[in-house]
């Protein structure tokens, strides 16, 4: 699908900071499109997303590059570390009063059912691959317009679920890829700290095949309402 013009329109309509980010989970190196190389810097998934959004990063990261093994684990790039999978880590960190509450939470986090070789990133407008998910980091007012746009064709309500841990990975990528519907998340301590998602920003993952329709709907709002 062609996204270049729609991204331009999206940025103009909503005056967003940076680009929508194309994210794809690939099963082998054969699926990496020509021109994409391994990202040399070892970082977290959420940092790669921010780098693609703000600095135009294009490339892929395998298990070796992913520093946040919990994030890589839920995306099927590595196995989930035992302290994360059992809830011990988040209990120890003080997120939950009991180990049971911690385990209840980590059991509920969307996790990839399949194993993947790498995560592939690009600003959406220059992506040479069809992404699984488009990650948007926007302010609440922009998120409002996006939410309204996602309901424009079929109506209803939106449901977003998150737990404040493993957000840009599980909430904005895995959940969206698996369900085929959007999800909004408020980030996690890691993503707020390491990739400097602003205090006035939220994260929305949407299935790539809904991006263009969403932009069209925002454009129709602008036409009807004047100012967004």
């Amino acid at each position: 699908m062609e996204y270049t013009e729609k991204v331009k329109e999206f940025k103009e309509l909503l005056q967003t900071k940076g680009s929508p980010v194309a994210v794809k989970l690939v099963k082998s190196s054969d699926e990496i499109p020509e021109g994409y190389s391994k990202i040399s810097a070892k970082k977290r998934h959420c940092e790669y997303v921010q780098d693609a959004r703000l600095e135009g990063l294009e490339g892929y990261a395998s298990a070796e590059e992913h520093l946040c093994k919990g994030g890589a684990g839920v995306m099927g790039i590595t196995s989930i570390p035992e302290p994360v999978a059992t809830g011990k880590m988040y209990h120890k960190l003080g997120n939950y009063q009991t180990l049971e509450a911690s385990k209840e939470t980590v059991d509920s986090i969307p996790k990839s059912n399949e194993n993947y070789y790498a995560t592939l990133y690009s600003p959406l407008e220059t992506a040479k691959f069809e992404p699984d998910v488009v990650v948007l980091i926007v302010n609440p007012k922009q998120a409002l317009k996006i939410s309204q746009a996602l309901l424009n064709e079929k109506g209803g309500r939106l449901s977003s679920d998150y737990s404040g841990i493993q957000s840009v990975c599980a909430d904005a990528v895995v959940a969206v890829k698996q369900r085929g519907v959007s999800n909004m998340t408020l980030g996690c301590n890691g993503s707020r700290k390491y990739d400097e998602i602003g205090e006035d920003e939220v994260i929305i993952g949407i299935p790539a095949n809904q991006f263009n329709d969403m932009v069209d709907a925002v454009a129709s709002f602008k036409e009807k309402w004047g100012e967004l």
């Binding site: 209840e104 939470t105 059991d107 509920s108 986090i109 969307p110 996790k111 059912n113 209803g156 309500r157 939106l158 449901s159 679920d161 737990s163 698996q178 369900r179 519907v181």
Partner: peptide, 15 residues
């Protein structure tokens, strides 16, 4: 197949 273990009604229905 989706895991909606942490999602409560009515959000489960909306999802």
């Amino acid at each position: 197949k989706i895991n909606a273990l942490g999602i409560k009604h009515p959000n489960s229905k909306i999802l």
